[in-house]
Simulated assay, not measured.
Amino acid sequence: MKKYIILLIIFCFASLKAQELKAFQFYNQNGREIKTEKLIKKLADFDVVLFGEYHNNSMIHWLEFKIAEELYKQKEGKLILGAEMFERDNQTQLNQYLNGKILAKNLKDSVRLWNNYETDYRPIVDFAKEKNLEFIASNIPRKYASLVAKNGLESLNSLSENEKKWIAKLPISVSLETPGYEGMKKMMAEHSGDKAMNFVSAQATKDATMAESIFNNLKTDYTFLHFNGDYHSKEFGGIYWYLRQKYPNLKIAVISIFESENPELLLPTKDFKLTDFNLVIPSDMTKTY
């Protein structure tokens, strides 16, 4: 009987251990697990960090906020923040909020905020405000990206000089050598035929504009932490590609994302190219929309 009880206890502890939950796991480019503390120290050595995200994932947004906090400490305040979620022509209003000249409700009325701003992005913006950090609205205004998707890259040439300042310097080079663009063209060709390249070009205007926005706001000894959809930097494409083409000496790190059903959050064995740092999260993590 005693032996049976001991075996039962061992079984129960084993079952509990098997049911332990992991919320996230970082890996380096060699596929080895890396602790968050060590990750922060390594990120502090880069000029630019491109943090890819899934826009509706609560865990990622929490990690973005915590990494911004810790990187701020590691860099002794020498940190610049920026995000795809804010468009260049809204920088003035964003600055007014950061400087305490307008209230949160005024920002909401004057800036094209994403629907999940309050839950997912405001904590980071308010952190920048509290610490007196720059927060760069890096993206192209969406109406110009939509114009390219509809009428092609050449349509940007007809814009006024005032409008062109919200876009990366023209002409913008679009190459299918950029990781992800060839796949996007093939995917869009199934729906839009010979207009597929317009959608690739629209993506390129976003990536090139964000890359230029980042570079134009760099400071010596600072780290620029930029938040963007994973597709804008995965596999060293998108923003990374444009930064690297024009500014090859920059030290740039990419954080890529993968959702997994595996409770141990192991790295995927296929269809995933490792970047500098790789975040694996549970696929059933709470979504904000």
Rank of each mutant, 00 (worst) to 15 (best):
G229V: 04
D276I: 04
L267P: 03
I239C: 07
L274R: 07
E261D: 15
F199Q: 07
N162H: 04
K219S: 12
K165C: 03
D221P: 04
N216Y: 05
N278T: 07
K169N: 10
A204P: 04
N157Y: 09
L267G: 02
S283E: 10
K219M: 11
R244V: 01
D284T: 11
W241E: 02
E161D: 15
E212P: 04
I281F: 08
G193S: 01
K270A: 14
I167W: 01
Y231G: 03
L266W: 00
K143P: 00
I255C: 08
D207C: 12
K273V: 14
L267V: 04
M197Y: 15
S173M: 06
Y247D: 02
L156Q: 00
K185L: 15
P248A: 09
D271P: 00
T178F: 00
H232W: 12
P171E: 08
K165S: 10
S160G: 06
F215D: 06
E161Y: 09
K165Y: 05
L266I: 04
S201I: 01
F277W: 09
L274K: 09
S233H: 03
A211G: 11
A189Y: 12
Y181L: 15
I172R: 03
L156A: 02
E177N: 15
L266N: 12
L267T: 02
L266A: 11
L218N: 04
N157G: 00
Q245W: 04
R244H: 15
T205A: 07
T269G: 10
L274F: 10
H191D: 10
L225M: 11
Q245H: 10
I140P: 00
N198F: 15
S233K: 01
K150L: 12
I255M: 05
S175L: 08
F258H: 12
V174W: 05
H226R: 01
E190P: 00
M188D: 01
S175A: 09
N217R: 11
V174I: 14
E161H: 07
T205I: 15
V148E: 00
D284F: 14
G229S: 08
L265F: 07
L159W: 00
K219D: 08
P179V: 11
V254Y: 08
I257F: 07
E235F: 06
M188K: 09
K195Q: 06
G183R: 07
S260K: 04
M187K: 14
M188Q: 10
P263C: 07
Y247I: 02
A253H: 00
L153R: 02
T205H: 02
K273I: 14
G152Y: 03
K206P: 05
Q203K: 11
T205V: 15
P268R: 05
S260I: 11
